[in-house]
Design a protein around this nucleic acid. Structure first.
Lengths: 164, 164
DNA sequence: AAAGATTGTTGTTGACGACAACAATTCGCG
DNA sequence: CGCGAATTGTTGTCGTCAACAACAATCTTT
C-alpha cells in the first residue's frame, strides 16, 4: 500500500546521477488519498476561485453573496441572527456589512423592538443587484457541473445537505 | 419555494408585539441551498475543526499533516516539489518547514545535485511521530464516517478524487 | 432596582492564499 | 564556452478568515 510512485516510469536524471522527481504526478500522497478532508479542501479552493472569478466583474465574494442572499430572503433579521445562521462570527459580520452598506446594497435599520439590534434590509439597488449576482452564481454552478458532472454535483449536495 | 420558515411553529414574542425570528432554524437560505460551494465550505469547516480537535494533543494541523505525509512517502523531495504537489505556496511552505524543523520532525538536507534546493526528510523522531499522527487521523476519519455515513464518505472521495 | 445576559462594535492573534522582490544557483541557447 | 533566462529558497506585504476578548448600550430575570 506504500510506495506507489517508485515503481513505474523511467526517471529523468540531472547532470550527475541524482534522481529527479520534481514532476508533481510522480509524487505519492500516501495516507492523504484516504482523507475526505484533503479532497474537500482542494475542491473548496477550486470552487471558491471559480466563484470569485465568475463574479469578478461585480466584485462579490462567496461570503458577501451568502449574506445578501439570506438578508434578501429574510428581511429584518438582526446581525446576530444572520451570523448564527451562516456560521459567521458576529465580529466578522460587522465588517462585511460595513462594506455592503457603503456600496448601498444593504441598510441597517435601528430596531424599535430591541434597540440594541439592527434590522437588516436590502436597498432597492441591492435587490436588483442581487438578482444579477444570482444569475452569475448560477453560471458558476454550471462550471461546477461541468467539472464534476451533473449527477455527482447532485449527489454531493445530497450528502452535504445536513451542513447547510 | 420561498418562505419555508413563516408557516410552522408559534413565534416567540418580545415585550411589545414584534416578531422574533432569531432562531436559526427558522431562517431560509434561499438560493444558497442549491450551491455546492456553500455546502462544501460548511463541511470543510466542520471537518477541519474535528481534525484539529482530534489531533489537538499532538498539536498538528491539517496542512502540517499533509506535508509530513508527503515527505514521509517521498523522502528527498525538494520544497518546490512538495509545494506544487500539495498546492501550497512555496513561500508558505518555508514557514511550515521552519516550524516542523524546530520540532525535529523534518530536516532540510542540502542537495548535492542542485545546490539551490533542499532535500526533505523525516527525522527518526519524525517518522515515529507521523505513525502516531496517522492513527489519530484515522480516528478523525471515523468521525467523518459517523457524521455522513460510510457509503457517503466513499462516494464523496470518489467524486472528488480528481482534485487530489 | 440590581444582577446577568445579549447585541453590536473594536481590537488582537494566528492560519492561510496571493504576490512581489531578491540572492544563489542552474539551465538553455547562441 | 559564456551569458541571459529560468528556478529555488527566502523574506516581506497585503487581504481573507476563524477564534477570542473586552466594552458600552440595552434587554431580561428575579
Amino acid at each position: 500500500m506504500t510506495a506507489t510512485a517508485a515503481l513505474t516510469s523511467p526517471r529523468k536524471r540531472s547532470g550527475n546521477g541524482a534522481v529527479r522527481r520534481n514532476d508533481a504526478d510522480e509524487i505519492g500522497l500516501d495516507a492523504l488519498v484516504g482523507h475526505a478532508g484533503y479532497a474537500v479542501r482542494r475542491f473548496q479552493i477550486w470552487i471558491f476561485q471559480d466563484f470569485i472569478r465568475t463574479l469578478g466583474d461585480v466584485d462579490i465574494r462567496p461570503t458577501q453573496y451568502s449574506v445578501l442572499t439570506v438578508v434578501g430572503a429574510n428581511p429584518g433579521l438582526s446581525q446576530m441572527a444572520v451570523a448564527k445562521r451562516l456560521g459567521i462570527e458576529r465580529a466578522r459580520l460587522v465588517h462585511l456589512l460595513d462594506s455592503l452598506e457603503q456600496r448601498r446594497l444593504v441598510k441597517r435599520v435601528k430596531s424599535k423592538a430591541d434597540r440594541r439590534s439592527h434590522a437588516l434590509h436590502l436597498t432597492a439597488q441591492g435587490a436588483t443587484a442581487l438578482a444579477k449576482f444570482k444569475r452569475l452564481a448560477a453560471e458558476h454552478e454550471r462550471h461546477v457541473e461541468e467539472k464534476i458532472g451533473k449527477e455527482n454535483r447532485e449527489q454531493l449536495l445530497r450528502i452535504l445537505a445536513g451542513f447547510t
